[in-house]
Design a protein around this nucleic acid. Structure first.
Lengths: 317, 317
DNA sequence: TGACATTTGATACGTCGTACGCATACATGC
DNA sequence: GCATGTATGCGTACGACGTATCAAATGTCA
């Protein structure tokens, strides 16, 4: 570089330097918007091509990231002066990984999941989700074709949390119990899950298909006809599904009554009590209330009975 | 308070507040007559119905007591502000008069059921239902407090179709199988049923409670602890529920594709095929398609396994 | 410099459930 | 008979929803 003489830097370099110092000083933080090309052009009184060069310089230095249509943004890990200024990164590195939409899509999904976890699936409206992400509702449709797909993909995302060991434990019973309990844990962690997808139609939810596939493998070699294997593989998630649905409803009811004791819920309770005291349902009325809502126990019961029955079918009893 | 938005309180609320402050201030003392409904109507220039609401609000708050023919009077212990204003206590379970309402209510329910049977629960909107009955949407609210109740009562109505024999067949297994199959038939006849109610929360659906009661009786005398009896009584409908849900989804999917082959569904199919051909799910991909959708067979499987398992628990195997 | 493909967000449309207010008819007590 | 509170039927309108449409703004490239 022979620019050591008094020859002044060209304008585009001067402006770029200006931004560079602001970024490195932390004045512009990662994620902040950098003025658009046309704004730079106007503000500094230069042509658009010049402003373009400014941004190009910064981008080649890895300080900013530009997306067409969206704008230019200070890139992460930019403030740490890890690379001597002026040392350009190979331009190929700027679009290395996935098409970048993938990351935003995950962000959308995780945010939606967070809302659903905290306030139930009903709270996940497109507007609400958009607000949470700081954008307009319509922007979501860039990452998701519609609400149906959003919900399905939320389910897929959380199903990805539950990994199944590759050989798995010994014996069909341990395997079946394992997969059922994994899904049960999932449903307890994400109460909206049974509302989001039907467990007996795993298509389109790849991570759910993986569970089905794993289960089918567990059923292989037991000498069962194919229809039985299918049914069994679909039965297990179905069992989880119903009980999980009840858990979800219980939670919702509780949440609502926690907020407002008004009208509907309270009225429900009153009516239920009235019905119970009519004497038409003596056994039902005599039940202790706590047991009804012990849904973990309920799940254990339903799963154990089923596996026992399956063992009978295999002739093991 | 309710001043969150700038939207002014509706007239009836404003007027009620006016009286409330006068009562609480002691301006109107216990035993004093409150202006009659028609007087209020005239004095404030509103309709009698509106004035009626004013009095209703005050009465629900326990501030006044109304007697037909006699008039409305400030109730005793009203001046002590013992209850946060606006917090109504007795919504007063409105027991609809039998004579006329009963028949019309059934008509509403049966019409709603007919729509749901033919086009799915999603087609049952208040407007649609009203149109079918030849009235305005708001007329429905004379017979039903809201959509939630409508749906619940629809379920109750159809559960009334399934009668259970009073002594029932001999032996626990025949009894349990009977009640499960009755519910299964119900769900096949009314595909929307599993969507309408949770089978594990029979409260508020008297005809469903009857099933639970019947099941509990079938489980009596087997020497089982009470928790087990409860769980079992709730398990049977739960089993029906999941499989029925799948049936419903299948039917909906089929119906939609029957109408329009466009976009979403077709796209789903394509994606599913793509996923299957990735080789990640060899066992799944090798399955014959017909068996997957044999949901009657699925139900038989799940029920038989469960009952076998229950027999094991009873030590009968 | 201008044409381009993208991305965005504001506006708006058609649904939904239902709150509100009105008019009218009815039942009850003085 | 008369005034009272109540019940019924219904038209209007509000706010929330999912999403179609489209102009404006963006970085890029000829």
């Amino acid at each position: 570089m022979t620019s050591s003489t008094q020859r002044p830097d060209p304008p585009y370099r001067r402006i770029a330097a200006e931004f560079r110092t602001r970024i490195l000083a932390g004045d512009l933080r990662p994620g902040d918007r950098v003025p658009s090309i046309r704004q730079i052009a106007q503000r500094w009184g230069v042509a658009v091509a010049t402003a373009t060069k400014v941004v190009a310089v910064l981008r080649d230095e890895g300080l900013v990231e530009a997306k067409v249509g969206a704008g230019t943004v200070v890139s992460a890990r930019a403030s740490r002066k890890e690379r001597p200024a002026g040392q350009a990164v190979p331009p190929a590195a700027r679009q290395a990984g996935v098409p970048k939409g993938s990351l935003n899509r995950r962000h959308v999904l995780r945010t939606a999941i967070a809302i659903a976890d905290a306030e139930g699936l009903g709270a996940v409206s497109m507007r609400r989700l958009a607000a949470e992400l700081g954008t307009g509702p319509m922007s979501l449709y860039r990452h998701v074709t519609g609400k149906d797909e959003l919900v399905t993909q939320m389910a897929d995302e959380v199903f990805g949390e539950a990994e199944l060991p590759v050989p798995g434990p010994e014996g069909w019973r341990a395997k079946l119990e394992l997969v059922a309990r994994r899904q049960w844990e999932l449903s307890r962690r994400h109460l909206w899950l049974p509302r989001a997808v039907s467990f007996t139609r795993p298509l389109l939810v790849p991570n759910m298909m993986a569970h089905t596939e794993w289960t089918l493998r567990a059923l292989d070699g037991l000498g069962l006809p194919v229809e039985t294997r299918i049914r069994e593989a679909l039965t297990l998630p179905a069992l989880v599904h119903t009980v999980a649905l009840s858990v979800a409803e219980e939670a919702e009811a509780e949440q609502e009554t926690g907020v407002t004791l008004d009208g509907w819920r309270l009225l429900q309770r009153r009516r239920a009590d009235e019905l119970l005291s009519t004497g038409r349902f003596p056994l039902l009325a005599a039940l202790p209330g706590e047991t009804v809502s012990d849904l973990d126990g309920m799940f254990d019961h339903i799963l154990a009975r089923h596996l026992d029955g399956f063992a009978v079918m295999l002739g093991e009893r």
